[in-house]
Design a protein around this nucleic acid. Structure first.
Lengths: 333, 333
DNA sequence: GGGCCACAGGCAAACAATTGCAAGATTATT
DNA sequence: AATAATCTTGCAATTGTTTGCCTGTGGCCC
């Protein structure tokens, strides 16, 4: 009574052919109820379950969605980043609801093949990419002839891939406008504009400053991987001591690090410096002071991503979605 | 110049057999350098990459680890739970470093086959289960003849599966002892002891109370899914207004919810009630007040899990690991 | 009792790779 | 030049399913 390893062995045991076993286990009515039940009982008794790899190969379908997180800009950035993690959790929930498993890959693109490699591997039915990083061109190249692909990130009129994200330019504008309205006459942007989303947020900040007749923002390409960036802050504050100051952080995580660095320097928000985050993550609610931020509706975003991906898998075409960012005022700005 | 779909088409194009192509793409020196390079160039030119499903089927290896999160106790608990997410992120990092992909399944066990189903599916080389939930028996049953399986969770002398986790009983003891040392004469435990880890933490709390000659703790099986549990807290506080009060939460998330519910009731920690968390998640550093907690070293835990799983895949045997919990005093207790 | 039809199940071809073995083509050795 | 040794490559089995098509048997009707 050794373990049954495949359908063939079960077929021999039952005295039928493999085809019959396959159909019986699938519950096909082509097989008489009697044999069907007999085979199912036999399978259960021996704890046999058909090999999914073989099945997937045969039916050319895996019921698995690949979720990719390209880290072109921040090679050392970890998956523990709260934004990724939040998005990942939401996607996992939505995909599970639809019966999909989730194949997770953290990718550090060394060549341009990283995306095509998984798209053509046959292991997934579709792909969700979280963030364009600095790989927009590569993504576009693959999207041209790989349809079941959706991307969380910034929208650009020229892009060929299908994206979901918020209006980053508007969000950046909202953040900066709020700071200006609070009287800030000197504004810095903390974030690395190499990635599309952040570049767009910076552009929004520029829009707001220009409308207010203020010059260029001071840009610090603060890297998420730096544990602290006291020097950056000090550098900025030193040259800007002539009025109320504001910082637009490119993400909530950067904002939190900024707050922490400020605390070390004996500064606090909003009195010494006003700090705006971006993302609207729940961690921002627990900080001291609570973080004012630009909220992106990630729940709805995840729903869109999954919904559109499923439709693309089914052969439909879908348009990119740009969601409204929302100014959430808590305490830091 | 249509797209090359498989090795056969590339073989025809190159005028060689499929075997040669396979070896050439694998870089085998059995094939002459000339043909090898010619075939590789051809593959690159046509953007061809061999189908991994077929490959995995043939070589009986997938380079994929399944990560399962059984939610037997909390059917509505989402993957967005910070503990799971933190652990997941750490595992993803470690597994990626070792060249493994990660197949994520959120499982709501309706039958006892959930674990065996994926173990025998052929889609993964090994499994990591995060939390025993109330499925310790099922896990043991599978672990008996499925070797490449490691579990994050509580250790029990009788278990057959290999686990990594902290000494929950000791952790619970540490938490309660600290509260007692602070003068608390009435202590409650918030958490559902149906899951093994939490049951052990509760046991530790009992140990501490017994040593101090105090009776049974008041146990509230607070569900993670409840948005607020004001009523539970009110119920406890009502009957316990005769001295300093302490609450040991079974997790940081429960502790945070407790703090929030208290805030709504106009109470604050540590003055009105002392609150201890469990896990040592970073969110606890950002709360008001910062959360005192029992810290489990999740980074080292994830390393252990991955390391031991890899060794088990290689055929080695491994012993369960029980790590020391650490009392981290911040502000709430 | 013979013909027809429906039902049950078997056969074998996919699916897309890897790999042991054998054979053909070169090169080296005596 | 003949034989041995070495390099390349091809053949075909293997991995474990699914599924279109075909066959065989039994029942039913005339």
């Amino acid at each position: 009574m050794s373990r049954i390893r495949n359908i063939k062995e079960l077929a021999d045991l039952a005295g039928v052919s493999t085809g019959t076993v396959s159909r019986a286990l699938a519950g096909s009515t082509l097989i008489s109820l009697k044999t069907r039940e007999r085979i199912q009982a036999l399978a259960k008794e021996h704890g046999f379950r058909p090999n999914l790899l073989a099945r997937n190969l045969r039916i050319q379908r895996t019921n698995t969605i690949g979720v990719l997180i390209p880290l072109g800009h921040e090679t050392a950035q970890h998956l523990t980043d709260p934004f990724f993690i939040t998005m990942l959790g939401l996607l996992a929930d939505k995909l599970t609801e639809r019966g999909y498993d989730l194949l997770l890959s953290r990718v550090i693109p060394t060549d341009s093949a990283w995306l095509d490699r998984i798209a053509t591997s046959g292991r997934v039915d579709g792909l969700i990419v979280i963030g364009q990083s600095d790989q927009a061109a590569t993504i576009d190249a693959v999207a041209k002839d790989y349809r079941p692909l959706v991307v969380w990130g910034g929208y650009d009129a020229d892009q060929v891939h299908c994206s979901v994200g918020s209006d980053n330019r508007k969000g950046g504008d909202l953040a900066a406008s709020h700071l200006i309205a609070q009287g800030c006459r000197k504004i810095a942007f903390f974030g690395d504009p190499k990635t599309r989303e952040i570049e767009q947020r910076l552009q929004g900040v520029r829009d707001a400053l220009e409308r207010a007749g203020m010059g260029e923002p001071h840009v610090e390409p603060a890297h998420l991987t730096d544990d602290e960036f006291g020097p950056e802050i000090a550098g900025f504050l030193g040259q800007a001591a002539d009025g109320p100051i504001g910082i637009v952080a490119a993400s909530d995580v950067i904002a939190l690090k900024t707050l922490r660095a400020m605390a070390v320097m004996g500064l606090s928000a909003p009195n010494d410096v006003r700090v705006m985050g971006y993302d609207g993550l729940t961690i921002g609610e627990h900080t001291v002071p609570q973080l004012s931020t630009i909220c992106q509706d990630l729940v709805r975003g995840a729903e869109h991503l999954v919904d559109m991906l499923v439709r693309r898998i089914a052969g439909e075409d879908t348009q990119s979605v740009v969601m409204e960012p929302e100014l959430v005022l808590r305490a830091s700005a």
